[in-house]
């Protein structure tokens, strides 16, 4: 199988993301591979472990996005490709999907395009479906696992609110994985060395034959969540009984229960 896994570089999940002067900032927190995409890489690698083939990691972003790709290489992906172009600054989900779809077509002969369920920065979670639509591939999203693959079909189990749903689609297809696929493997030291030495090709919009994207959505304003006011009151008493009674009175008075 030839699998392309799409990964994104995002601020560390432990970073404190805030809005300052109308701009989103995460200070000097490190950028990491989107945690959901690690599951996607794991899912793709498990498939080639079983079926044979290769996994190519694909990302769109600036130079820093190479770190996400190196992480994917260190986990076991065979190659990595970065699409980078100054005109992609501030691109929306549809623009991203157009770029990724064009890159998948340029790679050629791809059986499966794999995503994480969403990126933890934008949280839109629509890029997988949009890319599928643009490629004309079926979109099998929120896959918890793969039940079977043949030369031209794939069966996946989807994790949905109501439970599990088994769906079958024709290959080539687009998949997005949830964390049910299993814990992402740690990189190996051999993988780490391979990743450090890898020459990651950078494709521009010109090379993909794409015009500068015209965003359909933009962010006119981003706001911090309203600050919550918390007051603390210590309830004291001579005995646990007395403290508990006062607490019950308070809870009733405040209409918590």
């Amino acid at each position: 199988m030839k699998i392309v896994v799409c990964v994104k570089q995002v601020p560390d999940s432990a970073a404190r993301v805030v809005v300052e002067h109308g701009e989103v900032t995460w200070g000097d927190a490190p950028l990491v591979i989107n945690p959901w995409d690690e599951y996607a890489v794991e899912g793709a690698l498990r498939l080639v472990d079983e079926q044979g083939g290769e996994v190519i990691a694909l990302s769109m972003g600036n130079e820093q996005a190479k770190e996400a790709l190196k992480h994917a290489l260190a986990m076991g992906c065979k190659e990595a490709i970065l699409v980078s172009d100054p005109q992609l600054q501030g691109v929306d989900s549809l623009g991203t999907a157009r770029v990724l779809a064009a890159a998948v077509q340029k790679i050629g002969g791809v059986d499966l395009v794999v995503f994480g369920r969403q990126a933890i920065d934008g949280d839109a979670g629509v890029t997988a479906a949009m890319t599928a639509r643009l490629l004309g591939f079926p979109a099998l999203t929120l896959a918890a696992g793969v039940r079977g693959v043949s030369s031209d079909r794939i069966v996946v189990e989807r994790a949905i609110e109501e439970g599990r749903q088994v769906v079958e689609g024709a290959l080539p297809a687009v998949l997005s994985f949830t964390k049910d696929i299993g814990e992402p493997r740690y990189p190996s030291f051999m993988g780490i060395r391979k990743a450090s030495r890898a020459e990651i090709p950078i494709w521009s919009l010109d090379e993909l034959g794409l015009p500068a994207p015209q965003p359909h959505t933009s962010w006119p304003a981003v706001l911090n969540p309203p600050a919550r006011e918390i007051t603390t009151e210590m309830i004291t008493g001579a005995t646990p009984q007395e403290i508990a009674e006062k607490l019950v009175d308070k809870i009733l008075a405040e209409k918590v229960l």
């Binding site: 190196k70 992480h71 260190a74 740690y186 990189p187 030291f189 780490i192 060395r193 990743a195 450090s196």
Partner: peptide
């Protein structure tokens, strides 16, 4: 080096 940094991260 990048190898060192990745060993740290792992």
């Amino acid at each position: 080096s990048s190898d060192h940094q990745m060993a740290i991260n792992l």
